[in-house]
Nucleic acid binder design. Structure first.
Length: 477
DNA sequence: AAGGAAGCCAACCGCTCACGT
DNA sequence: CACGTGAGCGGTTGGCTTCCT
């Protein structure tokens, strides 16, 4: 309603609004304290869920949807109110760079915050920055992606030398992207909602580490099961990363993300492994009541306390679906660069067809989260997979959980090719920012990372808020 | 002080998915 | 396998507040 309309609204209308509009026995509009009390009482007695029965059983003139929303956003315990802290903002920025507009998933990593809050925050912040002609993401996101990919390039080369036909290299690559338990021989590189930032979100730039450190392999990480993990940028394994670079370089998509990438690397898992989160499966209720603990627990970035090197165990991130494809976009970029190679493959119809088929498969997985051939199998071996993703936050998170293709190994082989292609053409001469070099000796830890080693947050803040380094970045939109 | 613009936030709406029958 | 229902998610809207002129 425009201000003028508001001005002329009469007292009757005002009174009606205060009482809320009742239509078909359902009230709409702002909740009253009385309604809140009824709902809280109801939840106390009956627990969460079954929202449609609230109206019947409590006499509340609200639809189930409205009740759920009111409870989730305002009444449930452990909700944080008030402005976002700087750390929280940093987390949101980074998560958005990875996930796009997945507010619920972002909320799952911000204890006490709701998706609605985050969404509102982002929308207002984005509007502001867009008006100011500033990019949405800090430049370190770009640099981080670069470094990250270079690391993996080296790693893949190493893997290929060791196991030229290994089908696991890609999944190992994936495993290297996300913290997980290193020492658990039963662990799986499944996709889950990685809590990459835990509650130490700050410093996207500052936590950057020397690639050589990130590739400091430990024996226990490269055990017989092939579960090999190397430390990674604490901020973002693949992701944080990504979106910015491609958002700006390639544009397109929701919030500048590249959508519908044919690559869905994080939908792939190595079949022989098991679920790391299986031993910490929160019930939906517990996840909810505890804020996001349960969700976060599924794949939290776990500092390996047995390892003094501050390694982080690696678990795959749940697939960023749709609009967070920094890596995807990088791949596309690389594809453009590797036109010659593509031409070669086109000369070979078999190879070209194989690639095309594979990409279509991946594309399908990206769009739908599943591949028809891998229909969910309830109550069997895939149950773990389902359970994991249920742990993450919602059913929708599970969209990309199934393994891709009937022959995941084959898929992964092909994926390796693509990634190698990408990495072979990734610009190596991209300069690393000063803070990156400063961070050479920094550990990987998030929680353990000494704050003293970080650049002055004020500097970061200045860079961000004042946009000092943003002028070199392409504009949004 | 008044009016308008912008910011912020709560709530709603439509869609999708999972699950049960 | 089809259908219905419940639940959750993301986008959008609307109203109140704050800021600016």
């Amino acid at each position: 309603m425009c201000p003028m309309a508001r001005t002329v609204s009469n007292s009757n209308e005002t009174a009606a609004k205060e009482e809320g509009e009742v239509r078909n026995g359902v009230r709409k509009g702002p909740w009253t304290p009385e309604e809140d009390a009824i709902l809280m009482d109801y939840v106390k007695k009956h627990g969460e869920g079954n929202w449609n029965s609230v109206q019947k059983n409590s006499g509340l003139l609200r639809c189930g949807k409205s009740c759920r929303l009111r409870w989730a956003n305002h009444l449930r315990p452990n909700l944080k109110k008030g402005a976002f802290s700087q750390e929280e903002e940093q987390v949101i920025i980074d998560l958005h760079s990875k996930l796009g507009n997945k507010w619920a998933r972002m909320a799952a990593q911000l204890p006490g915050r709701t998706d609605n809050e985050i969404k509102n925050f982002w929308n207002t912040r984005m509007k502001r920055r867009q008006r100011a002609g500033l990019p949405l993401y800090p430049p370190e996101v770009h640099a981080e992606a670069t470094s990250y990919l270079l690391q993996h390039h080296r790693y893949l080369e190493q893997q290929q030398q060791q196991q030229p036909h290994s089908s696991s290299s890609f999944s190992l690559l994936l495993s290297s992207c996300y913290p997980n338990k290193l020492n658990d021989p039963n662990q799986t590189h499944h996709h889950s909602n990685a809590n990459l930032l835990q509650s130490q979100p700050d410093h996207s730039a500052n936590r950057y580490i020397n690639p050589s450190q990130q590739f400091k392999f430990s024996n226990e990480n490269s055990g017989s099961n092939g579960n090999f993990a190397f430390p990674l940028s604490p901020l973002s394994p693949y992701g944080s990363s990504s979106s910015t670079l491609l958002n700006h370089s390639l544009g397109g998509g929701d919030h500048g993300f590249i959508a519908g990438s044919p690559y869905e690397p994080f939908s792939l898992v190595q079949g022989s492994t098991t679920d790391i989160s299986s031993n910490q499966t929160p019930t939906p209720a517990s996840s909810y009541a505890s804020g996001v603990d349960g969700l976060m627990g599924a794949s939290s970035m776990v500092n390996n306390n047995n390892n003094n090197n501050d390694y982080y165990e690696v678990a795959p991130l749940s697939p960023p679906q749709g609009n967070s494809g920094l890596l995807d976009a990088l791949v596309m970029e690389a594809q453009g660069l590797s036109h010659n190679e593509k031409s070669k493959s086109e000369e070979d119809p078999n190879l070209a067809g194989k690639l095309s088929c594979k990409r279509k498969k991946m594309e399908y997985a990206e769009e739908g989260g599943t591949v028809p051939a891998m229909k969910k199998n309830s109550g069997n071996s895939t149950t773990n997979e389902s359970q994991r993703d249920d742990d993450i936050s919602s059913s929708q998170l599970a969209k990309g959980k199934e393994q891709i293709g009937e022959d995941p190994l084959e898929e992964m082989n092909g994926m390796d090719d693509d990634l190698v292609s990408l990495l072979n053409h990734f610009p190596l001469e991209m300069p690393m920012p000063e803070w990156y070099r400063r961070g050479e000796n920094q550990s990987l830890g998030l929680e353990n990372q000494p704050k003293a080693s970080l650049p002055d947050p004020a500097d970061q803040e200045d860079a961000w808020t004042l946009g000092t380094c943003w002028n070199n970045m392409p504009r949004i939109c």
